[in-house]
């Protein structure tokens, strides 16, 4: 009688940007897709994000950022995860991230970047297809 494994996701807002509409909408969509979603609120440093991801033992980290600080903050998250030996966590990002920056972020271990206009189901499907449980 084992209960099914649940996908656990940390949705985080790195940096100082306070626009959390997207983060919250995605969090609710993931919840409605049967996932357990930990939301930590605004103004998260990469260190805080990684620590929360570890304590909560999540399978996925979703980072939402609209301030333009993505190139400085997102690679730092994956770098810290690597240091903790937690590379198995799937890291995805969303927000206002210019197309030109996406290849660089992917090289740093951000698995996918979802821009404005993304359907919620696209994100759900992506996670289900790529998560390592």
């Amino acid at each position: 009688m084992s209960s099914p494994k649940r996908i656990r996701v940390l949705v985080a807002k790195p940096g100082l940007d306070g626009h959390d509409r997207g983060a919250k909408v995605v969090a609710r969509a993931l919840r409605d897709a049967g996932m357990e979603v930990v939301y930590t609120g605004l103004r998260q440093t990469p260190e805080m994000i990684v620590e929360a991801a570890i304590q909560e033992s999540v399978h996925v980290i979703g980072l939402s950022i609209l301030s333009g600080a993505h190139n400085a903050l997102l690679p730092r998250v994956t770098e810290l995860l690597h240091k903790e030996g937690a590379d198995d966590i799937l890291v995805i990002a969303g927000g206002i991230i210019p197309e030109d920056d996406v290849p660089g972020l992917k090289k740093h271990g951000i698995a996918e970047v979802f821009g404005p206009g993304t359907r919620l189901s696209e994100i759900v499907d992506y996670i289900k297809a790529h998560v390592k449980l």
């Binding site: 357990e36 930990v38 930590t40 609120g41």
Partner: peptide
């Protein structure tokens, strides 16, 4: 219904 949850206490 879905078994999903929003866990916001860390905020």
């Amino acid at each position: 219904f879905t078994g999903g949850a929003l866990l916001g206490d860390r905020i």
